[in-house]
Design a protein around this nucleic acid. Structure first.
Lengths: 155, 155
DNA sequence: GAAGGGCTTCAAGTACGGTTGAAGTCAAAT
DNA sequence: ATTTGACTTCAACCGTACTTGAAGCCCTTC
């Protein structure tokens, strides 16, 4: 059991193209596996690693960012811990943003407008997501009164 | 009040480069605004729209996907509702994935390993994220027993 | 021993999401 | 009247993340 995987096998298990796996290896993202007469043989655990990479890519990290995860503990220090802390914070932020977007779209569905861009609760989500920029909301757009009070302007 | 914005003004408010705003307009993502002697003048509401686009991009949607949101109700139908439903489901999935990634990384921080790839709870997150592919987890990797029980393998 | 299938490298090509630069227009200030 | 600064278009370029194609190696199967 647990025969080592060829690159094709790993590709099949993970759904990541073999060409992509080689590319990742070239970037140092994936460790170079053992070779049998020139061909790569991956340990079964490689599928998990690929899974993590896929996951992080899907939630918006670049390959270079993910590469930082592969870094073993730096000489003479924690090394990876601060990196993980940083990534964790970034992930939390991304999750919060995704939820804000979700809220905006969900309201878009619930509210009776023809064009979602006319809907205050939808745009309120947008406002929240532009946090940090001076989006002074002085101007009362559209129907503010009409059907809103559901979710009265956040912040 | 509520003077229309120049492209530079909109860029400043939203943090999106003017060149990017023109690019988005070219893609049909942003409606072409009124012009005063050739120059774009955006209504204040444009900042909100830009905010939504930024938000959706940050959570992983491509510009082409986001473009679908701009589509006004199709001739003779709901038009946008199914689209929004679909996007909502996608967003939910992305949030779930981000949370799975978060769990994996958080455990990586909490657990005592040198290399996170040795840690079962971390890789379990990976397994979850590879759902849909035949990642039969028959092989018991590493320390499964050693320090786990904190967060016993999530499905 | 010749064919086939899967692997190898390396270079070039592609799609996306922009930015940058050249050349020019416009309105206000000097 | 000319300078300044923000705007305009258009084409070319860039980084990221791959894919594709050419040419070849290795092992098995006919």
């Amino acid at each position: 059991m647990s025969e080592p995987l060829t690159i094709g096998g790993l590709a099949a298990r993970t759904g990541v193209a073999a060409s992509a796996l080689r590319y990742w290896e070239g970037l140092g993202l994936l460790p170079a596996p053992e070779r049998v007469s020139g061909q790569r043989r991956y340990p079964a655990s490689a599928a998990r690693l690929v899974g993590v990479i896929v996951a992080l890519r899907r939630v918006g990290f670049t390959l270079r960012e993910i590469e930082a995860f592969r870094t073993p503990s730096a000489p003479g220090g924690d090394g990876w811990r601060p990196l993980y802390q940083a990534k964790l914070a970034e992930l939390d932020e991304r999750i919060a943003q995704a939820q804000a977007a979700r809220t905006a779209i969900a309201h878009g569905l619930a509210c009776p407008h023809e064009d979602i861009r006319d809907c205050a609760a939808f745009t309120a989500g947008a406002d929240a997501l532009l946090a940090g920029h001076t989006l002074e909301q002085a101007h009362e757009q559209a129907h503010e009164q009409a059907h809103t009070r559901a979710r009265a302007r956040p912040r």
